[in-house]
């Protein structure tokens, strides 16, 4: 998931003695009462750091996430699909922007966050390090990746940090079309020619497992979940969301006549959900470490855009400085 804790070790330091226990107690009480925390309110340092990391990781995921789909904008197969895809990828730019702004209210500049991304220090969702090979990948991303993202983002509209919650309200409202357009495009392929059906099943095979990985490591290996849930910056566990996603998505695949690439998949009457196979966690951690098939391409593209844009950002700032000087003269 865009916001899943991608570190294996607990990276929230225990609350230091420097923090006033009375302030801390008051803070915890406010959060427990589902009150919102606003930028200038007192907050524990660990809360601030966790939020900056989570929100910026979410923002980076939106911005890097533009690339795999952007790969198909110029090749979208109809004018309608081209407009839809461009509008969707544009939304992702907007969502990245909303999220960077929310993170900036915590005292970290966007520039610092972008530098952390480009240096490899900051993480982003592993899903975007897989290539988009055919047009069906665009359909699969809309359906599966956005479907998984929505599942995570809807509860974040009630997250404890006000600016983050408000950004998520806007994101969720705008994303309501993203998954639908993906499923619609997939429907067209699944009901299309033999070549299109092949494309659809192949894309589904390749995106299914990475989509399940989006929810992050299993709960027993997710050391920060308890703290984040207590702080209301996470509202469901990774495994709960993953189960929910499988239960909702399998019937959608069946409706399209697609086969879920998991021989262990089986309905379990007792739990009222599907049993499914084990995610390849070695692969997951390898991709987190930056070993995804196109991780290098993604980072190169982002660095190039930023570096090649430097002269534009400088020029506009220089022009403004000249104008102020002229106005003052």
């Amino acid at each position: 998931m865009y916001t899943t804790e991608l570190g294996k070790q607990p990276n929230v330091k225990p609350i230091g003695p420097a923090e006033d226990p009375a302030l801390l107690e008051a803070f915890e009480a406010r959060v427990a009462a589902d009150e919102f925390i606003e930028p200038k309110d007192w907050m524990p340092e660990a809360y601030r750091r966790t939020l900056v990391r989570q929100i910026s990781q979410h923002a980076h995921s939106e911005i890097v996430g533009m690339l795999p789909e952007g790969n198909w904008i110029t090749r979208a197969p109809s004018l309608r699909r081209k407009q839809i895809l461009l509008a969707k990828v544009q939304d992702e730019a907007g969502h990245g922007l909303y999220l960077y702004c929310a993170a900036e209210t915590l005292g970290t500049s966007r520039e610092e966050m972008i530098e952390a991304l480009h240096s490899g220090k900051a993480k982003y969702s592993t899903i975007f390090n897989y290539p988009t090979l055919t047009w069906a990948d665009i359909a699969a991303i809309g359906w599966l990746v956005d479907g998984a993202a929505i599942m995570n983002q809807v509860p974040l509209q009630r997250t404890s940090y006000g600016p983050y919650a408000r950004a998520m309200v806007r994101v969720c409202k705008e994303e309501s079309f993203h998954q639908r357009q993906g499923y619609e495009a997939m429907t067209e392929l699944a009901n299309g020619t033999a070549a299109q059906k092949r494309m659809a099943q192949d894309a589904f095979n390749r995106w299914w497992w990475p989509s399940l990985m989006m929810f992050g490591p299993p709960d027993e290996n997710s050391p920060n979940t308890a703290q984040s849930m207590r702080w209301r910056i996470k509202r469901d566990t990774n495994d709960e969301l993953r189960q929910k996603f499988v239960d909702i998505t399998v019937p959608q695949a069946e409706y399209l006549g697609l086969t879920v690439p998991d021989s262990a998949l089986k309905w379990n009457d007792d739990k009222g959900g599907y049993d499914f196979g084990e995610v390849d966690w070695d692969e997951f951690y390898a991709v987190v470490r930056g070993e995804g098939p196109v991780a290098r391409e993604r980072m190169t593209a982002r660095r190039e855009a930023w570096e090649q844009g430097a002269w534009v950002r400088e020029a506009a700032a220089a022009h403004e400085a000249k104008r102020r000087k002229r106005a003052a003269a």
Binding site: G70, V89, A93, G94, Y100, G309, R313
Partner: peptide, 16 residues
């Protein structure tokens, strides 16, 4: 063709 590659996120939105 600019989408995802503009000089800033804001400009990316404008070009789109």
């Amino acid at each position: 063709e600019w989408c995802g590659h503009a000089p800033s996120v804001e400009v990316d939105l404008s070009l789109a």
